[in-house]
Nucleic acid binder design. Structure first.
Lengths: 273, 273
DNA sequence: GATAATGTTCGGCTATGCAGAACAACGTTC
DNA sequence: GAACGTTGTTCTGCATAGCCGAACATTATC
């Protein structure tokens, strides 16, 4: 997985600020073993001295941590970011309510479960309970994921008016991730209709071969889908029936969260506008 | 809790970057309901137009999220920060190993448990498992906390050579937080000696009246205290004996994490240098 | 010990980012 | 419903903050 951090064409008002953010994203995309000044400079396309100055200011504030190792310095993401990320999640409110239910869902299914919201059209996970055991299924938080090949994305899109869905899909595109990815708006909207009817969504190897996710939406007082939850598992040896059974289980847990928010269960939803 | 975000005397190389980071910290310290351009401008001490430009660049990158509400705009922390915070924690490695044990500790004690490391002398939580029930004991992640009045802080300091401890204490100061806070280096070092001997540390209403924490250090292959765990509870009606019993329980769970890291249990530690 | 590969500092030119004021879009009040 | 106040947004010009390249310092490598 060689993610290249593109120097994000600085057409933004504040160049130095943009570059500072580039540094953070480069460190976030990096191998995790830290980066040297030179590496960072190259990654964001500036001179070493510029990168150095950027890093200095961010280290002073705890946004970047540095560790000297002999004459060299390695830079990594600082813990201030942990704090801000935690605050950002806390401000969303849903997380505290949902996490215990996610834990129950993971206990019941032995699968990694996630909580996600729609952000600017993207599906973004804001909570997670890892499956027991050393399985290390990469479930990162806060990363923007395309909604058309994600169970939480589809759960959330399913309750949106189709003009809005089409606007989002047009804006973000529907790139093919696997041979099962739905790449036409018509196909996806048909899938969303089914999803809305049954109350749970599938990602059937549409994002990664061999991996399936099952998601269901969470509704607040106003009946809007404000979030979605999902579980992730291996396709290997699971029948259609198994997946549908999993689906109604996930939907049941989602309904429990909706209940805590004062929202309706899926079965009590008003029809789509 | 009226935390004022001081405009952090811009004596840093890059002014605009420093201000951008100020904006993030202001949003993090804010009420959580979002802030307007004007509020932010005032908080960090710049003109409205400057704040506006700063916000624009950060919104474009997802570091800040904006929500229009009528003609007004409210800014809050963006989800990109969640991603970076998650990456920062993931890069520390310990978290994945420790979290299941923290969960067990919380299950066994019904108390909120935390995992923390020493960062620049400060104690910083990087993992947390909340107690069941709606108790809302504020346990924020990633915030720098003074080590002299924290059970995790004291657990970590206890295994450091006393010159280093004194250097840290001198640098950070030992402000009085409650009537029980240890405010002299001599008193704290005596406490640390006891802590090192028994393998668990107390914060006995030293940070907040009515709240006690019990912590224990986690050791890696090299025998260094790389992290510490703790539980937090109300003082109300707990005897000395109860707390010591809790202490040896926390120590036992910390030892389990050390074991997973290939490090020694507390009882197998070499004597201090 | 010489060479290479870093990290760090310096200085000068330029473009950048700053503030303040003008403009626009709302909400509010009488 | 019109005048006002408030807040978000754009504009413009000047000063300086920030960028690069090159020199210097430091540490690994052979």
């Amino acid at each position: 997985m060689s993610e290249t951090t593109e120097p994000s064409d600085d057409k933004y008002p504040l160049r130095s600020v943009g570059r500072a953010l580039d540094v953070l994203q480069a460190l976030g995309a990096g191998s995790g073993n830290g980066m040297s000044v030179g590496e960072i400079a190259e990654a964001i396309g500036v001179s070493r001295s510029t990168a150095f100055t950027l890093l200095q200011t961010m280290v002073a504030r705890g946004f970047v941590a540095d560790t000297r190792i002999g004459g060299a310095r390695l830079y990594r993401l600082g813990l201030t970011l942990v704090h801000l990320g935690d605050r950002a999640v806390a401000e969303m409110g849903i997380t505290q309510i949902a996490t215990p239910i996610l834990q129950q869902l993971t206990d019941a299914t032995q699968l990694t479960s996630r909580l996600a919201v729609l952000d600017d059209g993207y599906a973004v996970a804001i909570g997670r309970v890892d499956a027991p055991g050393p399985f290390r299924m990469t479930a990162s938080l806060g990363r923007r994921e395309l909604p058309h090949c994600s169970s939480v994305g589809k759960s959330l899109l399913a309750r949106l008016p189709s003009e809005q869905v089409m606007a989002i899909l047009t804006r973000l595109g529907m790139p093919r991730r696997t041979e099962h990815t739905l790449t036409s708006q018509a196909a996806l909207i048909a899938d969303l209709r089914e999803t809305a009817a049954r109350g749970y969504a599938f990602d059937n190897e549409e994002d990664n071969i061999g991996v399936v996710c099952v998601g269901a939406a969470v509704y607040d007082r106003t009946g809007d889908a404000v979030a979605a939850i999902s579980v992730t598992c291996m396709k290997l040896g699971r029948s259609e029936d198994d997946l549908h059974q999993l689906g109604s289980a996930v939907r049941a847990y989602a309904d429990r969260i909706s209940l805590l928010l004062g929202g309706p269960a899926h079965s009590a939803l008003p029809p789509l506008a």
